[in-house]
Design a protein around this nucleic acid. Structure first.
Lengths: 230, 230
DNA sequence: GGTTTGCGTTAGCCATGGGTAACACGAGTG
DNA sequence: CACTCGTGTTACCCATGGCTAACGCAAACC
């Protein structure tokens, strides 16, 4: 019951190139995990100007993807439909990453960029079929959960490796996939989802961890891209 | 040696959305199989106005994808680079169709539309990997050959079922994939690449063929979408 | 030979999705 | 209190890629 994301994709009434809208909605959804989304933060995240965000905001409101705020300068809040579209995009993105990694053996640090372009143009049917082909995977190769349909979970973000202290023993759960170079580096160290590690030292600029017998030294900026669980 | 199509894809210097260019170049290439390409014919083929073709022409010439003609009103001729880009697009399109049909079991009459959107956004590397995954297929599910790299063959088009006479015995080689409804109809009849058929009757409006024990009556417009060989 | 038809081109309009420059406002800071 | 800094908005400009209207021209038709 309810809308499929196929319906949601018809949001732009007739014109197809709503790529930009999809990117805005997805970004708002993903930034939303860390709290209210300010327009300026969104602009920095998407590498566009504040003006572009301001204009996009009006359009997204007109299309019912964004909640209309009465006062200006309020944080951006997705509407129910906006959230559904965002989740559909995230699902596609992660399914595609999984497909590229598992079926085509594309290196981990390149799956994000490939998925980013294709996620806007595949049909819902193809997404379904890819999921079936892969055996309905639960996590993408970076360790992020793959939402099913309109599943709107809102689990708060896990802590990162940058927040730990010497002696902590944890599992790597996921990697931030947006910085290709960082992903390549982390993958080369074996800091992949599922890896068990011990924090040896942590100072202002670096974190030293041990994985099995290997000692790894990471910059904090890289450590912050590794989400961990116990 | 020579350019990979990855280089060719960088044709628009820095701006990425050269989707339209790719469509024009591919269309010119495909229409070119039937003789010189007039701008008006291209406009009808792409469902755009003659004006749009005229403007695209200037841009494509400026980008070196189209040969510059001295007199106006000359047919459109792809440059070497234009042809390479076109072949790369055709290759991707057919690889994607094959992937969708074989790996994802997408019905034959839908693979074209899916491929049409994705062919503009996949990387050369992914195209290579898909080819490898499929065992380097030679033909797409409609029976069209899949060019390899910059292979610029110029085989003249095969005759179609609409050009035959009673008594002719032929093999179906390929189906025109641009009319989804026609493909669905032909597939339902079993008029698929490889099928052996006998022409029973052919008049001005219909062609009657036999495939095994089944008699099939086709409109000429549909028969013209079936390319045949002996 | 005149007329119609089709073709390619120009001029000008539109929507999208970017951008700068400039402004008003609010929160801190001196 | 004044000042700065970050924020959101407005008014414009730009390129892309469509469109229609209108024109010059050539070929075909009567």
């Amino acid at each position: 019951m309810g809308n499929t994301s196929a319906e949601l994709l018809a949001v732009g009434s007739d014109r197809s190139p709503l790529r930009a809208r999809e990117d805005y909605v997805k970004a708002i959804y993903q930034l939303g995990a860390d709290g209210p989304v300010r327009a300026a933060a969104l602009a920095r995240y998407l590498h566009v100007s504040r003006v572009s965000v301001s204009k996009a905001k009006r359009q997204l409101e007109a299309e019912g993807l964004l909640e209309r705020e009465r006062e200006p300068s309020q944080p951006l809040r997705l509407s129910r439909r906006g959230r559904k579209l965002a989740v559909a995009m995230v699902r596609r993105h992660r399914l595609l990453e999984t497909f590229f990694h598992r079926a085509l053996r594309v290196p981990l640090d390149r799956v994000h960029a490939e998925a980013e372009r294709i996620e806007h143009v595949i049909s819902d049917d193809v997404a379904m079929r890819i999921a079936a082909l892969l055996g309905r995977p639960q996590r993408d190769p970076h360790g992020h959960p793959i939402p099913y349909r309109d599943d709107l979970r809102a689990d708060k973000p896990l802590p990162t490796l940058a927040e730990l202290h010497a002696g902590d023993r944890v599992n790597v759960v996921s990697l931030d996939d947006r910085d290709d170079a960082a992903v390549a580096l982390l993958a080369k160290c074996g800091l992949l989802p599922g890896a068990r590690i011990v924090v040896e030292r942590a100072d202002a600029s670096r974190v030293v961890v041990r994985r099995g017998k290997r000692m790894l030294t990471l910059r904090r900026s890289h450590a912050a891209m590794v989400r961990i669980g116990t």
